[in-house]
Amino acid sequence: MSPLLEIRNLRTAFPGARSGFGPREPVHVVDDVSFSLDRGEVLALVGESGSGKSVTALSLLRLVPKPGRVTAGEVRLDGRDLMTLSVGEMRRIRGKRIAMIFQEPMTALNPVLRVGDQVVEAIQLHELVSRAEARARTRALFAEVGIPDPDERLDAYPHQLSGGLKQRVMIAMALAMRPELLIADEPTTALDVTMQAQILRLLRDLQRERRMAILLITHDLGIVNELADRIAVMYAGRLVELAPRAELFANPLHPYTRGLLAAIPALAEPGTRLHEIPGVVPSAGRWPKGCRFTPRCSERFEPCEAQDPAETTRPNGRRVYCHAVAEGRR
């Protein structure tokens, strides 16, 4: 069976800074990224801020903010390339087959519309139903995502709800059309710790109940453990490693992945110093040649600075982009 979503060689560019009088060189903040997602699978896209993970997600929905644009690649949903669809066709996919929730529930909801109406809109955009029916369904959704007193909350404005409740409203809005794929862009970053756990549990329960695929975007490897089936790690616009969760945690291959894992307090040996990756993420457009992780890598050798790392594939679909791994040094 073909995967639900298949991304091939996706590249998304923003115009870079103007230098001298020349034209603006485009900077590819997402560079040659490929991965796929099966029905009901949870894939976590992990990376530091600026690694291009959010732009990857927005690219799937063709929502890259101007003046950025997808310059190459395919995004196939059930075999159909979303990049070639008309604007209207794409619109019928957004919210209906692929839904998305965002990091900041504070600003992601329209401040002057009642939250119930915003969910009702999500239903009525895709289905010819009466307002009353859409409202009834919204009420049921609110109850399902655990909003207390859903009847009252329907008519509340966003500023009257807490951050956690707003994120629940966002989830209700995303689930309204029973999408096959939910993209969750750092869904818990803006919330406090107890709220984070609740929202993650909610997402996990909903995912299991509805057999929905989730593309979970996060910089926090800690929350990945609860949800993800597979993990894709991004660094400086490129995929560096993609592996089943257990395997990645047990045996990280890419030096960057190992650095990330060693930096998680919960996984560290008690009494040892927490690891940190030396240096900082280079900003977009100032990426080094060859493997972009080279300057911060403890295992770099000659080819790293000169050539892009080759792909190493394992039989179980595991992929690593690293010269050291390719040459069998590890």
Partner: peptide
Amino acid sequence: STRDFVRTARAKGASEARIMTRHVLRNALI
């Protein structure tokens, strides 16, 4: 129209014209 809620509206499948008249206009009217 650069606010986050506009992106939300796009993500739920609203057309640009609808976004302008329903989401942006209401807020810009202030």
